[in-house]
Nucleic acid binder design. Structure first.
Lengths: 183, 183
DNA sequence: TGTCGCATGTAAACTGTTACATGATTGG
DNA sequence: CCAATCATGTAACAGTTTACATGCGACA
């Protein structure tokens, strides 16, 4: 139930409305914990019911501003201190690759090269982001850089792995072709 | 809806019962697409309703053996050929790290070192598995190795990243301590 | 006056997890 | 005959996605 903690975390800085939080998400947390609008409004109401946030103000258009309560702050601290359970990773890519002898070499190459492209693009995107941040300073940037570095290393690893895998497929195909020729 | 495709994929080799598939999962696919017993029995019934598998035999203890149909095979081929959508990755670890200025240095170190240990253990586990497989041959092993390599590289990357991140935290803390002493 | 952005919500469908329930068969 | 294994299922709950629904306020 980490959406809850993501929202509490964002409210530490300053009070905000659901709409504000939604936009904050899109420009910050979306990469590590995507969430939809529906989900957030629902969770904020549950958070208010549970007393972890207060509706501190109501503005025009039914705007409700939420403020973190002491109990909310405590909940957040507890969550940070608790061990992080390793979550199961489901990967449709690896699942497909598991059945890769059902596909043609070209199909497999297409799958892998697609991932290589995606990973390379992601790497470029994050590298650019790092440049943008390199000027700014302060604690938030240090934190941000650690997450960013994870993304960069992951993208790099996926890119290299996909290249390596394509080479493996090519090599296997060459062996098969040679065997066929010699028979 | 990839559990469906995982089951179809396993049925390519040979007909099997839900129970068989469950055990096959545990020893093969569980790492890339975990699923529970509940889920599998439900999905198999849905698969049969949809005509993608047939109940080809009924054995003792209510055992039902499922066989892939032509339509099932087609569905699997379509899935393999379709582009793999990049799935959003939620990472509780990175979410915590995003709020890392709310925690003490020791807490952060604990989080990161925990991950480092997990990643290192995973790496050792997979390296041992690779040794086991290195004797065997055949198409399945080649496929398996590609997925395995992904896991190895990921574990390695996470281990190194966690070490790097701890060093970053240490460095930051040293700066803070020095500043405090000098003030 | 119309459109864009602000602002919140509900409902349905799907996926996944946990726990419980039940019983047959095999092998020692 | 007892335990382990085979074998299938249901129910409740939690989390996510998609689509729909509604209306105010600012500004050109």
């Amino acid at each position: 139930m980490s959406l809850r903690h993501a929202l509490l975390g964002l409210l530490v800085e300053r009070p905000a409305s659901g709409y504000d939080l939604m936009k904050l998400f899109d420009t910050s947390l979306a990469h590590v914990w995507p969430a939809t609008q529906s989900q957030m409004y629902g969770e904020l109401n549950r958070l208010a019911d549970a007393g972890l946030v207060d509706v501190s103000a109501e503005g025009p258009r039914g705007r409700k501003e939420y403020t973190l309560t002491g109990r909310g702050r405590q909940e957040l601290a507890d969550w940070l201190a608790a061990p992080t359970p390793k979550q199961p990773r489901r990967s449709e890519l690896l699942l497909k690759l598991f059945f890769l002898d059902l596909a043609t070499g070209d199909q497999i190459r297409a799958i892998l090269e697609d991932r290589e492209r995606q990973a390379a693009a992601e790497h470029r995107r994050l590298a650019a982001l790092r440049e943008t941040l390199s000027g700014a300073d302060g604690p938030l940037t240090v934190n941000g850089r650690i997450g960013l570095e994870y993304g960069l290393r992951l993208a790099e690893m996926e890119r290299d792995w996909a290249r390596w895998a394509v080479a493996q497929i090519d090599a296997r195909e060459e062996v098969t072709a040679t065997a066929a020729r010699d028979s």
